[in-house]
Structures are given as C-alpha cells and as structure tokens.
Amino acid sequence: MSAEPKPAYKASDFKSDIAPIWCPGCGDYHVLLSITRALAQLGKPPEQVAIVSGIGCSSRIPAYTNCYGFHGVHGRALPIATGLKVIRPDQTVIVTTGDGDGYSIGGNHFLHACRRNLDLTMIVMDNHIYGMTKGQPSPTTEPDLDTALTPGGTGLRPFNPLVIALASGANFVARAFAGNIGQTTSIIVDAVTHPGFSFVEILSPCVTFRPDQRSWKTQVHPAPVDATDDPARAARRIMTDDGFNLGVLYRGNRQPYTPKFGGSGCDLSELEREFEL
C-alpha cells in the first residue's frame, strides 16, 4: 500500500462533549460516527466545517460535533446552508436532515438546492417516519403503515428521493446504510470531495417506531455496478432497484454554482451617481 500522509485529525476531534439524546439502537449514532470519521479523513480542522440542520432526530447532529453548526427551524436547513456557503465558500458545509425535515416540509428547498448545485453535501437520515413527534408517516413511509395519525395507512405511494435529486440536478447521488459505517464514511468523504451539490441518502433505522427496520441490515447490498455520469441511466437504475442498493449511484460533472461577488468593491459614493440630477 502506498504511504498516505498520516491524517492530522481523529474522529474524536470532531465530536463534542454533548451526549446524544437519540434512543439506543438508533441508526443516527452510526451516522454521527461516520460523519466524524469522514471529517477526520478529509483532514480539515473542525472550525473549517459547518454542519447545518433543521428539526428532527437527525437534525440534532450539529451540536454533537465540534464544528460550527446551525440548528435552524423545521425544513430550512438547506437555505441556511446556502447563505452560509455563499458567504464562506472556504467552509466545508454539510446539511444533516431527515425524511420529514428534508423531503416534506423542506421539499421545495431540496429541489432547488439540487438545481442550484452549490458545493454542499446533504446527508439525509431516512427512517421513513417522524420519530421526534412519535411515529407519523413521512414522504418515504410505506402506504400501509398504520399510525395514529393515519389509521390503516396513508394509501399514498412513497416518493423516491434519489430520483428526485437526480431529476432536480444534484451532482452526486449515493445511498448508504447507517450500519455499514466503513462504507458510509467512505461515501461521505466522496460526497464532500465531489464538486457541487452532493446528495447522500442514508437508511437509518428508527428502532422505536419502526422496529421492523432492524432487518435492513440483512436487506442492504452493494450496488452491482459502478456510479455512472449519465443521469438517465442512473435514474433508470434507481427507479428499478430494490431500494437497498448501496453505493455511489451517480457522479455528475456539472459546474457548481458560484455567485458573483464584485471583487473588492468600489467606493460607496459611486452608487449614488445614478441618482444625481
């Protein structure tokens, strides 16, 4: 093996001293591990990373890291991350969200963040349920899941976030499983490194409201083929797979969006000229 430079950081350098409030057994513990390991591998100091979230179990992550963080309101992590990244393009900006926060209340921002293709990474911990409000169906919940809010199930088809990301213009689309910490870490490193908007859907079981998801670890499997840069092919694969294909599924080469800042700036009095009589 080639001698890579020794990483300057350990995963623990990216962890805060705050103990997570997630239920023991929750997939989000794995995701937190994977994120901190990925950040250690990426080798940037913690202060040069910002993690932005909305509301929900998954959105608790920023405070559990030792990075700059923003725990905003429900559904609005992507716009906050957008403003942050526009002003500070030198920061590595990661959005951590869930299927309710990211796909339902924040659905419009999801579409447009993909389309805008700013150099961000969106990590969605998808457990097909609202955990923090006690088990209501999300956009990815199966139609027949009986819940107190939807007795007998929603009867609605869950949507496919990976296809939506692809159709909306995300530049990197991957699926991971929380329990596969090594692979998830590697995908996150890949996603952060890839230019433009990277979308990583992580199947992250909710042991409290979806104990059936414990079986996910036996259902997931590596994607049989490598990532493609052809969105049409990627879409066809994702639409026909079983939902448990893990790996990088699409790796695009669109130019990331960079807002135009007008250099160092002119004298303010120049702005008055158009008004002078």
Binding site: C23, P24, G25, N180, I181, G182, P205, V220, P222
Partner: peptide
C-alpha cells in the same frame, strides 16, 4: 476498514435498547 457490516468486535449499536 470494513465496507459492509462492521468492525468485528464493535458492538452492534442497532441492537441496543435503553
């Protein structure tokens, strides 16, 4: 590292319950 599954001796966090 382990790409699928987990480091062998690492306890499976997903089987925990409070």
């Amino acid at each position: 590292q382990w790409m699928t599954g987990d480091s062998p001796e690492a306890a499976d966090l997903s089987s925990a319950h409070y």
